[in-house]
């Protein structure tokens, strides 16, 4: 039985110059074919100007159990948001 092609994650930069965004995954034997497949599968409607592919196996992800340790610390730092500092109506341009 033939070997299954490895899985790749696909990231596309949209027309508007924003950051590459994850759009999905696909199987391909190597990076070049992964880009070719990504063009066919994920950009049939002019969605992007640039494609990144990365082997799914090479991506390290946080696990759901780490959520608190990773994100809890920022919860108590509301002063990082500008809305923490109410400004008087008379004061402009702040």
């Amino acid at each position: 039985m033939s070997k299954e092609w490895p899985l790749w994650e696909v990231f596309i930069r949209s027309q508007h110059g924003l950051a590459h965004k994850h759009v999905g995954s696909l199987h391909a034997p190597d990076a070049e074919m992964a880009i070719n497949h990504a063009r066919d599968v994920y950009t049939r409607r002019n969605e992007g100007v640039s494609i990144w592919v990365a082997r799914a196996g090479d991506i390290f992800a946080s696990s759901p159990g780490d959520k608190e340790a990773l994100f809890e610390p920022s919860n108590s730092k509301v002063y990082r948001h500008p809305t923490f500092f109410p400004m008087p109506d008379e004061v402009k341009n702040l």
């Binding site: 033939s2 070997k3 092609w5 034997p29 190597d30 074919m33």
Partner: peptide
């Protein structure tokens, strides 16, 4: 599919 894999 096998040929592409062999090439890779």
């Amino acid at each position: 599919r096998d040929a592409l894999q062999a090439h890779a």
